[in-house]
Computed example of a mutant assay.
Amino acid sequence: MLSKSNPKQIIIIVQCLFVILLVTNSYGQNTTYSQFWNEIQFNQTISEKWSTEIDVATSYSSTESSSNLFDNTIQRSLRGWAHYYYSPRWKFSTFVAYLNNKDVPEIGQFESPEWRFALQGIYYFHKTGYTLSTRMRTEFRHMRNQDDEYENVFRYRQQVKYIQPINSKILRSGVIYAIASDEIYLKSGAKVTGENFFDRNRFNIGAGYLFSDDIQIELTYCNEYLPRNNGNQTTNAASLTLSFNNLLRNIQKKIANKHNHEIKDEEE
């Protein structure tokens, strides 16, 4: 345990941390990309315990020769989810996704179609005034490498996420909220994704707004660090997510209500 009478220990520790940080950031070629990610989520409630979700996403990126974050369309994806709400604290999910990876910097900027399957669990620490959660996800990725051969990659992701309402104590219509999260990725080695066991670290910070109980938007900044044998990569990304709950059901209700009002007006 450090004491105030021995400040040299603190100086030595700080110097060691500085050297480690310097070595880490100087390993190989360090390339930085600017990106924009956008996603639209459609959630549908099936019952008290079950819901489904469909996500449509597109990602854009700068290149080594251009700083324009919309210079390249690097990925399009379609994802289908099933969610099971086991308890107020536990939520279990699974998804199947198809990703059209094209010119993705992290895998070498070549076309790599991918099928992805995942199992996920989220545990919520419900607190007064904020929500803390931890997410565990295991992914099975079936993706094409540069030799036009498909490889299987297993990846584990662990995330901690914090949500803080700004103008209310709870999340409801008209509330702005702050978001912060950090996630680590661990994976099996493969030609298409590299041999590194530690895949990346992703840090997110931003805010969201609930237009209603069924429509919300989130805008975040993401810093992603990817250690690679042929050179480390850093990604600075702006992420925009728009979510709709029970969209078709709500549209049908509005049409039915409008039809009922028209009939009532005709009768009067």
Rank of each mutant, 00 (worst) to 15 (best):
G28Y: 02
G174T: 14
Q75N: 11
N196A: 15
G206P: 07
V175C: 01
I217K: 00
A207Y: 00
S65D: 03
T52D: 06
A237W: 09
P7I: 04
V23H: 06
T193A: 15
I13W: 01
L210C: 02
N246V: 10
N204Y: 11
N232V: 02
E183D: 09
Q252E: 15
W50F: 14
G80F: 06
K102H: 12
S212F: 06
C16F: 01
L247S: 05
P113H: 15
H83F: 08
E218K: 14
Y221I: 08
I255S: 04
Y27M: 09
I251P: 01
Q158W: 12
P165Y: 03
I205S: 02
M143V: 15
N152L: 07
N72A: 15
D199W: 00
Y84D: 01
L242T: 15
P88S: 04
L69V: 13
S26I: 09
Q44W: 02
T128I: 13
E224V: 04
M143W: 02
T24K: 06
N30R: 06
E268Q: 11
S51K: 04
S112R: 08
R157W: 03
H261W: 05
D182K: 03
S168M: 06
G121H: 00
L22K: 09
S168T: 00
V96L: 12
R155I: 11
A82R: 01
I46W: 05
R157C: 08
K253R: 13
S173Q: 13
L248A: 14
H142R: 12
A207R: 00
D71R: 14
N257W: 02
A180F: 05
A207D: 00
Q120E: 15
I176G: 09
A57E: 09
L132C: 05
V160F: 01
T220D: 14
T134G: 06
L240W: 14
E268K: 12
A256D: 10
I251W: 13
H261Y: 07
Q29I: 09
S26P: 00
N68G: 04
R141D: 05
Q44Y: 05
N6V: 04
S212V: 10
W50H: 05
N30V: 10
R228P: 00
S47A: 10
I12F: 01
E262H: 08
D182I: 11
D71Y: 09
V175S: 11
F70G: 05
N167D: 07
T24Y: 12
M1A: 10
N100V: 07
N204W: 07
N152H: 06
I20P: 00
R172K: 15
Q233A: 09
G80E: 02
S133R: 08
F244T: 06
S77W: 10
G129K: 06
T128N: 10
I13M: 02
Q41K: 14
F110R: 11
V96W: 07
R172Y: 05
I179E: 15
L22E: 05
S168C: 05
L78Y: 11
Q109M: 10
E39N: 13
N246A: 13
T241K: 15
F95Y: 14
I54H: 10
A180P: 03
G129M: 11
G194Q: 11
E48I: 04
